[in-house]
Design a protein around this nucleic acid. Sequence first.
RNA 1: UCCGGAGUAGCUCAGCGGCAGAGCGGGUGGCUGUUAACCAUUAGGUCGUAGGUUCGAUCCCUACCUCCGGAGCCA
Length: 453
Amino acid sequence: MHTPVLAALSSQAPSDDITVCGWVRTRRDAKAFSFLEINDGSCLRGIQVVVDAGTPGSESLLEMTTGASVEVQGKLVASQGKEQPWEIQAARISLVGPADDTYPLQKKGHSLEFLREIAHLRPRSNLFGAVFRVRSRMAYAVHQFFQDRGFLNVHTPMITSSDCEGAGEMFRVTTLTPGSGSKPEEDFFGKPAFLTVSGQLEAETLACALGKVYTFGPTFRAENSNTSRHAAEFWMIEPEQAFCDLAGNMDLAEAQLKHQVRDALERCAEDLAFFAKYVDKGLIERLKCVADRPFQRVSYTEAVALLEQSGETFEYPVKYGLNLQSGHERWLTEKYFQCPVIVYNYPKEIKPFYMRQNDDGLTVAAMDVLVPGIGEIIGGSQREERPDRLSAAMAHHGLSEADYWWYADLRKYGTVPHAGYGMGFERLLMFVTGVGNIRDVIPFARTPGHAEF
RNA sequence: UCCGGAGUAGCUCAGCGGCAGAGCGGGUGGCUGUUAACCAUUAGGUCGUAGGUUCGAUCCCUACCUCCGGAGCCA
């Protein structure tokens, strides 16, 4: 049995016998002894090991270079040094796997661009170790938040045959040979199939039976997007509640985002402190602000008015009836409100068919949550539950009702007001960590032209 | 996909129309309860690729490739 470095460093008392396993971050040699710093990923810090000359296994010391894996057994003792409370006085060390001088991770910092090229090794760096520990904790917090509130986790399909959900270009799934001239009827599913761009429509069916549900799974978009906040494969959280309106939906979104942030502040303090030091100086302050203060809520109409009165010159002009541009969203959340903002009630022309039409005849009950630094992190709506209105909207968007017969059935049999949203998990991580590129909060990013590893 | 920027040692970068540079990392030697240790020493290059201008191009021009930033699409 070996002890995680995290447990060793948080010890309350010395120990006569402890074993740690991990990877060497650095070695400093003196004449009569050496210092090894061992990291095992359990926490940001490594543990210092003191290896006296002649310690069993020390004949391999010269091979215990940065990147090598080792097992160390010895005593946990109070450190004489100032930088750490505990260190291990080695009784026996063994080289598990050497790393020669081509090991690409140095003791110095590396650029994020370089680390992306060695995505298989970058989890061994301080930054990516911290990112993936926070990622794990945030995934846990997602389930915790919804489970504690009586939401059921549902698994919607990753392969779908509806190709016009309006959420973006889709990846085709086929067993046919390209260029063979085969017909769609000969394909595996007997018709064209795609990777899902959203589990929403299916989640609605489960919400309209189980009440409160959420999905948390991978999502695929074949858009040729080359930005710091888009990936072709990403993880999305999609809650859906029956007997819920737009206001309830906004309340849930705000509560969830706050829960995620509070949990990170509480449970990932060391990693967050690292991000605050090296990635984003204002991180902790911003997160605390999000956790403590109510989100601002403005209608699309109000948002447009604010932007028109702002006196700012935007790359694209503000105009009622058009989508808010990134620059507009950033001004609202970063400059004007300086906190998360929920913009709701968008013009129906710029939103998908399933959003509930408001009584004004102009807008739908949509909402976007905008946060500083990222922009849109959540998008959602109350869904159109009235059969006639849904039919009209589908016709207006040029969709065939026959393709969505099951979706329409929800309105035919015991329809209820219901609402939900999608939260981009990687965007949440960008927000929580301050890391500026979506490629750096997922272990192996898939973007146009990139499916390495 | 569009606009802008950048490609020089393993990494981070400087440089310049005339012999290719630094710091870090690697090797070697030394030293020290050290802390991204320190001191000395050493190796390491198709200056993104292909053309062009020029007596001479890493430098100027063109195209292409790659990466970065911004935009669109969205989460």
